[in-house]
Simulated assay, not measured.
Amino acid sequence: MLHWALNGPHRVENYDVRNVSLTTEHWTDEIRCSYAMNYGNGVLRRDVRWQPRSRNTSGPAFWAKAGLTAAYRFSGVQKKTSYQRLLSYRIDPRAPLGRRLLDEKDRVAISI
């Protein structure tokens, strides 16, 4: 079994074989607290322009951020972001490595 720590760096190398990846998500109380703290810090930095210094996952500052996180998420005021990606290949089982590169004129932009 492989495991990467939360927010830990990792790298996947696909050589000349087909690979299947399965991603699962597991939440513990510690992870929930860390998520709330990071999300709250992000809201404070981005929307309030304040640089929080604390990364504590307990105490009054943490609970204030957890409350901010909950209120912000459930209020619906967060900005919905979409990304565009330019597809440069298509899946093609007959092609080498199972994909076919697209010419510049055939590339397609998709919104994610």
Score class of each variant (00 low, 15 high):
V20I: 11
P9R: 12
A71E: 13
Y39G: 00
M1F: 10
L2P: 04
G98A: 09
N38C: 03
W27H: 10
P93K: 06
R94T: 12
L101S: 10
S34W: 01
R73K: 07
S111N: 06
G42S: 08
R55G: 11
W27T: 09
R49I: 00
F62H: 13
L44S: 00
Y72F: 12
K80L: 05
M1G: 05
A36V: 03
R107V: 07
K80Y: 06
K79M: 09
A5H: 11
G76T: 01
Q51W: 05
R45D: 15
F62R: 02
W50V: 14
A70E: 15
L86F: 05
S58G: 03
L87H: 02
R45W: 04
S21F: 02
N56W: 00
P52W: 01
R32I: 09
W27Q: 04
V77F: 13
S75A: 10
R18D: 15
P60Y: 10
G40E: 09
T24I: 13
N56M: 06
F74Y: 10
D92V: 01
R94M: 08
R11Y: 05
I112R: 14
Y89K: 05
Y39L: 08
T81R: 13
L86A: 12
W4R: 08
V43S: 07
R53C: 05
P9Q: 07
A70K: 14
W63H: 14
L44G: 00
N41Q: 13
S21C: 05
E25L: 11
Y72R: 08
N41E: 07
L97N: 12
S75C: 12
N41G: 02
F74R: 08
D92F: 01
Y15C: 10
Y39Q: 10
P93M: 01
